[in-house]
């Protein structure tokens, strides 16, 4: 199982804060997961077209080629605006 979490504007656009993805034998990258989420429906596809979205795995910022394994927490969110 891979836990996927969404934040801020992205969470609101998807109307989803988190979901679980069953893992199979195929190795997946962050980009693969993004593609799987995009395939959900047109709304999700449009939302994930946004190229400025950032991703993190287990609380560290990563790029799309990062490999994800079962038990990981993957996060997608817009560029940060704290401070």
């Amino acid at each position: 199982m891979i836990k996927i979490v969404f934040f801020a504007a992205l969470r609101e656009q998807l109307n989803c804060a988190e979901l679980s993805l069953a893992t199979d034998d195929n190795t997946k990258t962050v980009n693969d997961i993004k593609q799987l989420l995009s395939d959900k429906n047109e709304q999700w596809q449009q939302t994930f077209c946004n190229t400025s979205l950032l991703s993190a795995v287990n609380h560290d910022m990563v790029d799309g080629n990062h490999l994800v394994k079962s038990g990981d927490e993957v996060a997608f969110f817009p560029p940060v605006t704290g401070g």
């Binding site: 969110f77 940060v80 605006t81 704290g82």
Partner: peptide, 14 residues
């Protein structure tokens, strides 16, 4: 620290 917080720490303002 402030400059890096602005671009690396996961906070969002509405």
């Amino acid at each position: 620290i402030m400059d890096y917080l602005k671009v690396k720490a996961p906070f969002w303002k509405k």
